[in-house]
Design a binder for these strands. Structure first.
Lengths: 244, 244
DNA sequence: CGCGATTTTGAGAGCCGTCAAGATACGTGG
DNA sequence: CCACGTATCTTGACGGCTCTCAAAATCGCG
């Protein structure tokens, strides 16, 4: 296939956070993979309430899923980082109930939605991985609901920053130093169910606490203990995870 | 097996909302099924942050998943009705990040978590169903996040009542008349991210609008059009769905 | 240097939370 | 059948967190 990254050269393979494939699985995925999609920052990946012939694995960059109400109110739902699968709903339902767009330039691995039946038939272990990814996203959504429903603005913000920092690290970004953090405060507001103005004021309080510093699109955690307390974070499961 | 409902007598099979099994699938599920669990109303099904050897399909009754913060704030996450699968996370992760309890007396179909590997190996079509269920729950969570993040109290309440009414109908409850509705206002508050008092006051406004009547544990939709407008509901996908 | 996007800050309003108390419903025991 | 206790529902008063409106400051970039 004429792609920049055949699966055995996939940059995600190298990361310890992801489970290793058997040679046979790797060969299958190489056939399954249909192409690559490069997008600019701020581009649409899916529109809301449409169907898509493709499912994507994020290889590089940051993307965001969202839902909107008819009058334009927007709620961002899940942040997708390298290794995450976008658009699984397209395989199982006629339409996708969410949209997605890119925050940074992204590289997406293109998988045909029609190929999943064969994947399930011939590779149970990969089917299991698909289900793992779906279940993991459910877990993120549970946390998001808990945040928006019950945490205060300061807690929400602390939780979000900690969580994204943690996930970005696992996805191989940033080494030990600050992590690249391409969100605007408006994105954060859409994620937390807050207004832009209030995010800004809350962020000021959080900065004054000395737990984090977030400037110029990069995020540094100065006092992780304190940040976790402020965000009422419960430590997550570690260990390798799958991706497609 | 010594159970009240072998799979071919499962009361859910009779409902048009669920997809039919092949005889072979049915035979497999009959072997897979490990037993039945009857619980009183208000009983715990799972505790938060524990592991479970079982996964359950709700056959009769209503159950609720929830998450809590250390200081006791609680957010209810997904309502589980007949046909829904509870505890899939137990198959894929070491611990479940949510708890679940029953609202009414429930009958649960018990599936061993260790059996899912074989299910994926021998029955790709059922594995697909498992993934469908996971993806469907993600869809419910997306809607929940949109509600709690962006809808006003009145909109949230209208949306919730419409949604539960719709799902209860599909699960075969209530015929054309009022639907049994075993929630307390406190449950609703925990679901919507509101306080009990505010739910009560909002409910009064909603009742005054004439769209719904909710008394004595039963819910009647008087003006569906109006209720959908108030809740900013987008019509859902119809058609048969799977269950295990 | 100038323009748009983003961030910051202030003022005022309103939705919703907390506190408190009473009313109603329901199951239990006398 | 009535008394009583508990759970649930209802209502009012008050306060605060967060929203909206508005405008200025800063940043990124051509």
């Amino acid at each position: 296939m004429n792609v920049e990254f055949p699966c055995d050269a996939c940059p995600l393979r190298a990361l310890p956070a992801f489970r290793a494939f058997s040679p046979e699985e790797l060969a299958f995925m190489d056939r399954f993979k249909q192409g690559e999609l490069h997008l600019e920052a701020g581009g649409a990946i899916f529109h809301e309430n449409t169907s898509s012939p493709h499912v994507y694995t994020v290889v590089k960059g940051w993307a965001f899923r969202y839902k909107t109400l008819p009058d334009g109110r927007r709620q961002r739902v899940v942040k997708d980082l390298p290794g995450d699968l976008i658009g699984l709903q397209a395989v199982l339902h006629a339409e996708m109930a969410y949209g997605a767009d890119s925050l940074t330039p992204v590289l997406l691995c293109v998988l045909p939605r029609t190929g999943f039946e064969e994947l399930f038939r011939s590779h149970p272990s990969l089917a299991f991985d698909v289900t793992w990814l779906a279940s993991n996203e459910e877990r993120l959504l549970d946390e998001g609901l808990l945040s928006v429903g019950r945490r205060t603005a300061l807690e929400r913000l602390a939780f979000l920053l900690w969580n994204l920092h943690h996930r970005a690290r696992r996805a191989g970004l940033g080494g030990d130093g600050p992590v690249p953090f391409p969100l605007t405060q408006s994105h954060v507001a859409d994620t937390l169910g807050l207004s832009l103005v209030h995010v800004n004021k809350t962020l000021k309080r959080l900065r004054d606490s000395g737990a984090v510093s977030w400037t110029n699109g990069s995020l540094e955690v100065r006092d992780e203990q304190r940040l976790m307390e402020l965000g009422v974070v419960s430590p997550p499961e570690e260990g390798p995870r799958p991706f497609l």
